[in-house]
């Protein structure tokens, strides 16, 4: 017996066919020009994100959790949060922070992009510094609370 092809919900099919028709109408126009380059960017963006960027940061986070071990678990968030925020800024503003558009940017806007890497480093330092301070404050409060509590409560 041949395997039967399951069609699925007709409404869903209709919706998707409409969606593809519109996408194809725009797609023909999008690809008019450097079609290979554009297709590479659209498909590449999805693949690069799902198969490179996401596994990379997930692996980095897992390594952080593993590295911290059971004793350092409390500290994980104090590294994870500033690191995530700093990397987010780097990801979004990479052309300015890396200086790769410095020439055109300076020429066009009469502004200098020299400050971007320094500002990013300063914000990163502030994020980690603030996080460390918060960790130290909470740790000392926890220690005080433990000391004041009678040992029977443990």
């Amino acid at each position: 017996m041949r395997p039967r092809i399951v069609i699925g919900s007709p409404l869903q099919l209709l919706l998707l066919v409409c969606s593809f028709a519109l996408a194809a109408y725009a797609g023909v126009r999008l690809l008019d020009g450097d079609w290979f380059g554009v297709a590479l960017w659209v498909v590449g963006a999805a693949l690069l994100h799902d198969l490179v960027l996401l596994p990379l940061y997930a692996a980095a986070d897992r390594a952080l959790v593993k590295g911290a071990g059971a004793r350092g678990r409390r500290a994980v968030a104090y590294v994870r949060v500033p690191a995530a925020l700093s990397l987010l800024l780097l990801l979004v503003w990479f052309p300015l922070i890396s200086g790769q558009v410095a020439g055109r940017y300076g020429h066009a806007t009469a502004l200098s992009s020299d400050g971007y890497p320094a500002r990013w480093l300063l914000v990163t330092a502030a994020l980690f510094g603030g996080s460390a301070l918060l960790f130290a404050l909470r740790a000392s409060r926890r220690r005080r609370a433990t000391k004041q509590r009678p040992p029977a409560d443990h």
Partner: peptide
């Protein structure tokens, strides 16, 4: 699982690829 599901997954490529683009 079905033709509709296959098309939905193809549509997700346009959603994710198009959105990131």
């Amino acid at each position: 699982r079905s033709l509709a599901h296959a098309l939905e997954r193809l549509s997700l490529l346009l959603l994710v690829g198009g959105g990131l683009f």
